[in-house]
Structure formats: C-alpha cells, structure tokens
C-alpha cells in the first residue's frame, strides 16, 4: 500500500535568516532567556497556523480522551518548541543545561559490544537530538542518523554551522545507495538510528491500532532490519519540563525475521509492536508528540 506525501512537502515556516537570528539569540541569552522567547513564538503559531492546530487537536483529543483546550495546545507547541531550542544547545555542546536520566544504556552497550551493529528505532517524540549526548559521551562506536535532509533542511544547515565536526553523522535518505551506507556502518559495528513512525510517499505501510484508530506505520524499518539481520533497540528522550529529559533504551528484537510465507502477517505484527510502544509513550507523555500533520490519514486507493 502506498500513501500520498503528508508531511515531506510541508515547507518549514520561517526564513533562514530568522532562524539564524533565533539561534544567535538563544546562544547569547542562554537557555532561560531562549525559553522566554518561546512563549510569544508559540502564541503566534497557535493563532496563525491552522494546519498545525488541526493536527494538534486531532492527536490530543485521541491521547487525552477529551476535547483539547487552547491551554493543551499551547502546552503541546511549547514542548515541541523547547526541544527544538534545545537542539541548538545540544549542537553547541552545552550539555550542562540538561538533567538527563538514562535508562537501558547497559543493555544498549551490551548489544554494541557484540560488534555486529545496532539499529536504533525512535519516533517524532521528545528529542531525537538527545542522541548527541550519547554520541558525545561514552558511546564506544559512532552513531549515524538516517534522515531526510531536504525536510527541516534550513534548520539543520543553521544548526550544523554550530558544530560542523559533530560526532553524530547523517546518512541522507532518498538515494539509491542510502541503505548500502547503513549496511556498511552496521558491518563496522556502528549504531544507525532512524525515526520509524512516519510514512513517506511511496512507502509501503501496515495499518496498526494506535490511540484508538488504525494508523499507517511504515514497513521499511522492519524490512531493513530483517535484510541486515541487525538487532533493534528502541530509543526515546522525553522532555519532562525544566531541565529534565528522560532517555530510554528498550530492546525490540534480536533479529526481525520475515518468512516468505506469512511475510505480511509478520510485518503487521512487528509494526503493531512498534505502534504499541509508541502509544505507551504517548499516553505517558502526551505533549511530547511532534507529528504535526494528520497522522491517521492514509490513502489505500493507490
């Protein structure tokens, strides 16, 4: 099954210059000052971005099980904006701003120690960028992140200027050799992280129960893990307010096996397991969800 592009063509709001100014101010003012700036910015988006408001309402009404108010939406935006602001500080290596609690690092390190590589599946939930803390401190192998460069490209290029020799490298999605790069990184025993919750144009997907309604989840990450016979660990970094982030690594699969007969069934099972994991995190930390588009929408007709 194939879907239409739902998020990849959503242009980033704001010009590059404005972002540069914002990053400059954030670094100049420090985190307390930077956070103060987020209030008027979030208020602006709450008033003027109808699309984000609709997406936020659609998600929050499901996760909170009630009609969300303006206060809920503002809180949702503010949580998102804070994690973006914090990306700038993470890129600038100001790790001292944060109080990170890490759970499951021993399990991840044990997997990494086997030198057969490891796939980390995350989601647009909390701060994926918190992996930088792991990459820069005490991780024995390089961490590569698989992502679309054209999406969020402006912000990424501004942020990259802060720290061109970042310890976390990006493998760009959308090229023929992309997955060969992933295979080679895993063969060197490295960690490759990816966000496994979004379906992109042309992606095959499985419909899985998610917050009370079936939602499309991409097959790609499971197919990749199966082809490479790589162990899979789940990653989340939830923003708890103030300086606090809770980073968690959880085992997902030693190997994902997709048998020739019953392959679709196996894919559905794996995608549904992932969806279940994501749902439990959403229920636990509802405002950390950052898919600002209609996540449940899919197109079966193609």
């Amino acid at each position: 099954m194939i879907v239409r592009p739902l998020w990849i063509d959503q242009a980033e709001r704001g010009s590059r210059l404005l972002m540069q100014l914002m990053v400059y101010l954030a670094l100049l003012l420090g985190r307390a000052g930077g956070r103060a700036l987020l209030y008027p910015i979030c208020a602006y988006f709450l008033v003027f971005s109808r699309r984000a408001r609709l997406a936020s309402t659609s998600y929050l009404s499901r996760v909170l099980d009630r009609r969300p108010g303006v206060r809920d939406m503002f809180r949702h935006y503010l949580c998102f904006a804070t994690t973006i602001l914090d990306r700038a500080y993470l890129m600038a290596k100001r790790f001292g701003y944060f109080d990170c609690h890490v759970d499951g690092a021993d399990m991840l390190l044990a997997v990494v120690a086997r030198r057969e590589g490891c796939l980390l599946f995350g989601a647009h939930l909390g701060s994926f960028e918190m992996l930088r803390v792991l990459a820069a401190t005490g991780c024995p192998v390089p961490v590569q992140i698989l992502m679309y460069e054209q999406n969020a490209g402006k912000l990424n290029s501004v942020l990259r200027n802060l720290n061109p020799k970042s310890s976390m490298q990006v493998i760009a999605l959308g090229r023929p050799q992309t997955m060969l790069l992933v295979a080679e990184a895993l063969a060197r025993g490295e960690i490759v992280a990816l966000l496994a919750d979004r379906v992109v144009t042309g992606d095959r997907f499985q419909l899985c129960p998610f917050l009370g309604t079936l939602a499309p989840f991409p097959e790609g990450p499971m197919v990749l893990a199966a082809a490479l016979r790589a162990p899979v660990v789940l990653f989340s970094a939830i923003y708890r307010g103030g300086r606090r982030y809770d980073i968690r690594f959880e085992p997902f699969a030693e190997r994902i096996i997709l048998p020739r007969t019953g392959r679709a069934e196996a894919l559905r099972t794996e995608c549904a397991r992932y969806a279940g994991w994501l749902q439990s995190h959403c229920r636990d930390a509802p405002y950390n969800w950052f898919n600002f588009y209609d996540f449940w929408k899919h197109d079966k007709s193609c």
């Binding site: 023929p176 050799q177 997955m179 060969l180 992606d203 197919v223 082809a227 490479l228």
Partner: peptide
C-alpha cells in the same frame, strides 16, 4: 527504493 537496492545488493 533504497531498501530494495540493498536487498538486491
């Protein structure tokens, strides 16, 4: 797609 290319490789 790129995953198909990997499987072919």
């Amino acid at each position: 797609d790129s995953i198909d290319v990997l499987e072919i490789a």
